[in-house]
Design a protein around this nucleic acid. Structure first.
Lengths: 210, 210
DNA sequence: CTTCAAAGTAACCAACCAGTGCGTTATGCA
DNA sequence: TGCATAACGCACTGGTTGGTTACTTTGAAG
């Protein structure tokens, strides 16, 4: 929940409250479903302020998206995977990705919304491209070290591996509602979550092992 | 594109045109973004006919979703995987799933929309549950035959395997727009698609092999 | 032919919604 | 203290949207 409005005027705080409320609403209802009035109310701000700080609903969406992505890329960097042996580094990345999706469920729905709109709102974000390049290099480094140590097979594309690591967690969580109906099981019990994580680690390890 | 309006009155054809147009619009813009007037125009029908046949926008969405799921479940059955040896059956399923997503891109966005609304529109569809049960049994049978033949390891949960097979294709395609921006490569060239399919087959085979 | 239910249409409505015009209030600085 | 600037708020609009009312047309059974 965005915090309460401060007594005195504070541009940064108001901007931040709007951003937090927008993230919630866009994640819950998508770009088309979210209401600017609702965002303003949740942020304890006036709708006029949204247009003052962000210009348009679409631009607000754009900034929410960019922030969300920069957040996960920063968190990945803080894992310092280059300090771990390759197998431990990869398993840590799989666990981290899974837990990040669990702890930040709005990230997944925001990404879905962005893609429904064909990625239009992320085009031209140089900050994001830079962060992503660093991330891919980190995974490439893990793979290279694993090959050198003889524990990973050579020739694996780090981008394909990244996509797979994200996919096996992301899909399970984003499609948990229809999954629960089709497969007649609760996807979100602690046991179900633990089983899925173990399955995913096994999948990735078998994929890379020499 | 839904066909042109027939000369004479034809309730079934009108209903079908509305359904086809709705599928397109819901897939393109989501439940909230789709416009009933637009669906009526695309279907060459009057908006009132939508309410006559389907009662409400939400109910129209519900039926579009159910049809889309039944379509893929039926197509899977037609593969007759029980006539193939276990390894060939599994690879065929991975290829089929991938190609189905490629040939029916609206399926993916419909599923995303359904999950944004927490699966609410699929609740209580007994037809769908029956079809899904048969599908899971089919995969379980492939796994069992593979274990008996000594080519697959035992203890694999067919539901987890299903989820993974869907995930590694689905995620790549649904997130191809943001992926293209982040990873600075075109996800949809024939070569990129062939590489991803090969990677996915490798992933699944390594996951199940004894 | 007649009849009548179903198919089809146009015009409408109340609610809603992104965006704005314009005025007010607080704050930092000279 | 006075002033420029930025933060903030209210009330409105022009256009849109899901859904409805009241009506005409069609086809087929008897």
């Amino acid at each position: 929940m965005p915090g309460a409005r401060p007594k005195t005027r504070d541009a940064d705080a108001t901007r931040a409250r709007i951003l937090a409320a927008a993230k919630e609403e866009f994640a819950r209802l998508g770009l088309g479903g979210a209401r600017v009035d609702e965002i303003a109310e949740k942020a304890q701000a006036n709708k006029r302020m949204i247009y003052h700080y962000f210009g348009s609903k679409e631009n607000l969406f754009r900034i929410v998206l960019e922030e969300a992505w920069l957040d996960i890329r920063n968190a990945e960097q803080e894992l310092e995977l280059d300090h771990l042996p390759p197998e431990a580094a990869l398993e840590t990345l799989v666990r981290f990705t899974w837990n990040y999706y669990l702890d930040n469920p709005e990230f997944i729905t925001l990404v879905n919304s962005a893609n429904l709109h064909r990625g239009r709102h992320l085009e031209g974000s140089e900050r994001l491209r830079t962060a992503s390049r660093r991330f891919v290099n980190m995974v490439r480094d893990i793979l290279d070290r694993g090959v050198a140590a003889g524990v990973f097979r050579p020739g694996i594309d780090p981008v394909q591996l990244n996509i797979t690591i994200a996919a096996i967690g992301y899909y399970y969580l984003t499609n948990r509602h229809t999954g629960a109906i089709l497969f007649e099981r609760d996807f979100m019990t602690p046991q179900a979550l633990a089983e899925r994580l173990a399955f995913n680690i096994e999948t990735v390890m078998r994929l890379v092992r020499a």
